[in-house]
Design a protein around this nucleic acid. Sequence first.
DNA 1: AACACAGGG
Length: 934
Amino acid sequence: MASSPQSPSVDDRSNESPSTDDEESNARRETDIHERDAFAKRLRKRDEEQTKKKFKPEPVSHDTERSKLSVDELRKKSRHVYLAARKDKKVEELKQELADEAYLFKDVKLTKREQHNIDLKKYTLNLALEHERAQQMENIDRYHMPTGTSDDTLKNDRYREDNRHPEAKSSGQNSDQRRWEDEVIHTALPHYGSLDKEAKNKQPKYDYILDEEIQFVQQLTIPGVNQILQQQKEKPKLHEHEDENKRKHRELQESRKTLPIYRFREDLINAIREHQVLIIEGETGSGKTTQLTQYLYEEGFCEADIEEGDEDEDDDDNEINLPGVKKKTKKKMMIGCTQPRRVAAMSVAARVAEEMNVKLGREVGYSIRFEDCSSDRTVIKYMTDGMLLREFLGEPDLASYSVLIVDEAHERTLHTDILFGLVKDIARFRPKLKLLISSATLDADKFSQFFDDAPIFRIPGRRFPVDIYYTKAPEADYIDAAVVTVLQIHVTQPLGDILVFLTGQEEIESANEMLLERTRRLGSKIKELIVLPIYSTLPSDMQIKIFEPAPPGARKVILATNIAETSLTIDGIVFVIDPGFCKQKTYNARNGMEALTITPISKASANQRAGRAGRVAPGKCFRLYTAWAYQHELDENAIPEIQRTNLGNVVLLLKSLGINDLVNFDYMDPPPMETLRLAFEQLYALGALNHKVELTKLGRRMAEFPLDPMLSKTILASETYKCSSEILTIVSMLSVNNSIFFRPKDKMLLADTARQAFFAPGGDHLTLLNVYNQWKDTNYSTQWCFENFIQFRSMNRARQVRDQLEALMERVEIEIQSNPADTVGIRKSICAGFFYHTTKFSKNGMYKTVRHQQTVLIHPNSCLFDQIPRYVIYFELVLTTKEYMRQVIEIENEWLRETAPHFYKTKKLDDDESVKKMPKVLGKIKAELERNYS
DNA sequence: AACACAGGG
């Protein structure tokens, strides 16, 4: 390995990124050899200069060169003057606005949204002021972009340090991980740009190309770990006389031994034997997800424990299985491992089955919605967290499991959070059950505390080091800043793909356009830059393009939403650009409204994003915010989902598990009181709970469906109106969240016309039914979807959901009946489920919800947008630019009394008093909630 | 006239 900057011919980066242009790098090396002496001379001179500068910094040297270019300079200067003036004006405006608002609303209680707007303004103002302050500080160092060459990396001490044998530092592993988090800013290593001849030559050239540039400063590095182990994998061994299968299996077994977790196997097993609950803190790449289950299986954790069940003991040799008589004697117990995502559960199970040399679905299986790939002989079962949650319904003590592993616990999905409380509870009366909570770093202590101070077992991961760069000053427009940074990287850094995290489709599209525009302007002065978007609703054929390697000499830049943070990994990423924002769903339980807001990410998220740069080679992460902002403005972790979502379904599920006291349920982080209260209120209104807040028979039937209670109720009500087939279709279409219609930017009008062709009188639910039925008539054709601007993927999913729901109808004993012409019956069924979502057109020309008197509008995409029915029922309420009802149908006033007589008492819905008061019992719930939450 | 992070059953 190269150990000093004087051996430039050993370029470790080029070994690791196979996509680099070989010819070019060879040529570069030759030139290097010829000019090395000259280069070294220049280098020494430069170093001396920089040592001086360190103490008395001056503006970046190329500023002086630039002054020769009078035209460019003038243009640039005038632009700066303009921008500065504009910024000053905007800042002044903002200040004024905030002052006005503070005065006007000082005694008024603001809504969440209003408060949010004000907070946003304050935040923006703060950014602007901070920017100003930073610019006024003339005496601070200014830094170039890092060059990112091997020389650069090697001159750093920490690089060598992190290549120490993992064992030598395994004890200090965790403190290492923590330390970089807590690193103080002034300990950071100042980073003085180019030490590389090539980059040095290029730097001034690109100054003319790029008319703007962002100053970054390197603050710290996430250390790489376990790279020596990785290299072991490549050691060749000679094994002759081996057939293909045997060789493959042996190689698999050998590669298992190279995983970081392997050397901890014995300790780990001992710890598990010793403790019932164990927190496992391991980073991605440690091998925990695939290996833990196998270790446990190999160590006999699947053997049924005879002490636990006494009926197992007799009749061991009686092998005759009588029908209806359960024979448990030799049945092994399972090791269950939950994942937050379906693809993960499937792919991990497939990998483990391969490693164990068994057929997937036999000894190793998986279980996800729509697909149970497991059998009687399954001993290792991967599943989604939601799936295990539903398994509680059939087996409340999970008696068939001897070990439960909750993986990716740090993601804190709604289902994982509920599982925590449930598994903690069953562990108390099943002392033999082993519980493993597996999480990434940083929050293991919190998990340990929750599980009665369970011990934490730490396993290092496997990652290349990632250098972190922060902007010196805050960037107000992060999209523009991201685009500039992409170009900066493209012209100054060696090849290696770039990943940019943006918040949504719209941002991705505009960034895409900006990049195309600017690269076109630069023309042949720069290498080819391939821009690829990725987000979940992007059609699949466009999604897979991100996995195609860039052609030689070109660079890929991937513009991604959060989908690239956890859900999919892209190889070849060396640079990550992180503006520090994401869209997050929020739920307002006061009026049941949802909103997607752009919020700053958490530190955990930022580090996850940075880690994406170090998968295949040492990487760099450019954060478009200051180190100060990282330290002081980002939360440690994101708000867990349980605190920002509707809990109707979860409350119903827990109720049907016999958990009556949801207030004192053992939450790791409790949901807001209002959310629980609304869930109770709605379940009561639907008839799922009685006056004693007990589950009713209706409620029990509703819990059979993996749906929001209102949708379940709609299905059950369809029995009365003999239209269950149509309702199943509508419910399925509603549960693929408004991604049915495809609306490409360049064909918006065409797409809108296509969508309007499906409009049905009565409302959007009937429009959705129309779409599905037409698609079904074409025998579920892809071509038809394409021609009608319908997303095939979403339709397919709706079909899957429909099939599942149809199968569940048997369990609630409802016949599938079709009555397509009776749109009144269909709408009455929906009314029976969604009467709580009634709105009435009021005198002021707006709609008002009958329950909360909230003013709302029909969404412009609705087929009822230009009509004014007196009463409409909405599927959901979203806050975007205004408060909108999405998916609405027109109803008659009388239907409310017919379908929900317990909720609406008077014939006419003329004033809000006609809505029955909630019974006292709900008042009690509220009181209890308030007491418990105080 | 709008504006759909991700994921799960």
